[in-house]
């Protein structure tokens, strides 16, 4: 599906990510290390959404909520002094999965526009839940006092170093990309794509499509949760803003901008989205006044996204 040119570009992009912590200080812009770390974090969330949107055709407008669940789990545990990563990470990812499974089970009963609105409403519900948690900072958010600790016995291991966490994020992102490529190539991915193109036919073949859609939805929520875990660790701070509905919209935009249903699409999408907003914000405080119309034009004329450019003539 992804062409050779696309693969070359994607891998060069990953190489750029890998050398950024060395390169950015050399050109006198150390701030760009943070920007690129954030790009990877959002790319991971977009990757989670792409699994159901790009391959399964489910338009969720609420995936920032699961990022928030992951981040808040780490934040709250750390706030209470539980900093072991062996506890935090599985719990955070598990909780995101449970929320995604419950919300998915209800949302997936509906179709089309109802599905979009319901996923949006559920994420809004979690947003208000976070706002109402006064003991955890309400609107102001919660400081995460220390990053996850991976020490075993006397063997100390952590991600306190800024370079360490950058490369941890990069490694996990690459792992996610690899896992997703395996998943998509396998039986699960085939069924997911089949559901997108003709669900009735799959049902006629005896596939319980609801279960597969729910499994995909849950898995994608868990990937977003993992991105949230890394967010909390990287920023040292979590706030309801992370699950605001415009965040969900942005993740959606990244997927479409990069090319829905393409393995590396979310990576392109997140890179272009965040770099573009970075550049526009340098020109003017009112950068959304340019970004909004750009978005409309992309939707109107460049539906395949950036990934579509590499797709060539044999588009799927």
């Amino acid at each position: 599906m992804d062409t050779a040119v696309g693969k070359v570009v994607s891998i060069s992009l990953l190489v750029i990510f890998a050398v950024m912590p060395v390169l950015a200080p050399l050109v006198g812009e150390p701030y760009y290390v943070d920007v690129f770390a954030r790009i990877m974090l959002w790319a991971m969330a977009a990757l989670g959404l792409n699994l159901i949107l790009g391959f399964g055709g489910m338009v969720s407008f609420g995936h920032a909520a699961y990022v928030g669940v992951g981040a808040y789990t780490v934040g709250i545990l750390s706030h209470h002094g539980v900093s072991s990563g062996f506890l935090q990470w599985p719990l955070a990812i598990g909780l995101s999965g449970i929320f995604a499974a419950i919300f998915g089970a209800i949302s997936l009963r509906t179709r089309g526009i109802y599905f979009i609105m319901i996923t949006l409403a559920f994420s809004q519900m979690l947003y208000f839940l976070a706002v109402s948690l006064e003991q955890y900072g309400s609107n102001d958010g919660l400081l995460v006092p220390e990053r996850s600790d991976f020490s075993i016995g006397t063997l100390h291991a952590g991600i306190d170093d800024d370079h360490a966490i950058y490369y941890v994020i990069l490694c996990i992102l690459v792992l996610c990309l690899y896992a997703k490529s395996r998943l998509i190539a396998g039986r699960f991915g085939m069924i997911l794509k089949g559901i997108k193109s003709n669900e009735t036919r799959l049902q006629a073949l005896g596939v319980s499509t609801y279960r597969y859609r729910l499994a995909a939805f849950t898995l994608s929520g868990m990937i977003c949760g993992l991105s949230g875990v890394l967010f909390a660790n990287f920023e040292g701070f979590v706030s309801p803003d992370l699950m605001h509905w415009t965040r969900s919209g942005e993740v959606l935009i990244m997927v479409i901008l990069g090319g829905a249903g393409m393995l590396f699409g979310p990576l392109f999408g997140a890179t272009v989205f965040l770099l573009l907003s970075e550049v526009l914000a340098r020109f003017t405080d009112y950068w959304n006044i340019i970004f909004g119309p750009i978005l409309i034009l992309v939707v109107l004329y460049a539906k395949g996204g950036i990934g579509g450019l590499f797709r060539g003539r044999n588009r799927g």
């Binding site: 479409i256 959304n288 978005l295 939707v299």
Partner: peptide
């Protein structure tokens, strides 16, 4: 267009109007 396009385009409009 499909609903996804409509959502994205009108999301772009929201950004534009709020900033405007």
């Amino acid at each position: 267009r499909d609903h996804l396009d409509q959502v994205l385009a009108t999301f772009g409009l929201i950004l534009f109007f709020n900033e405007g």
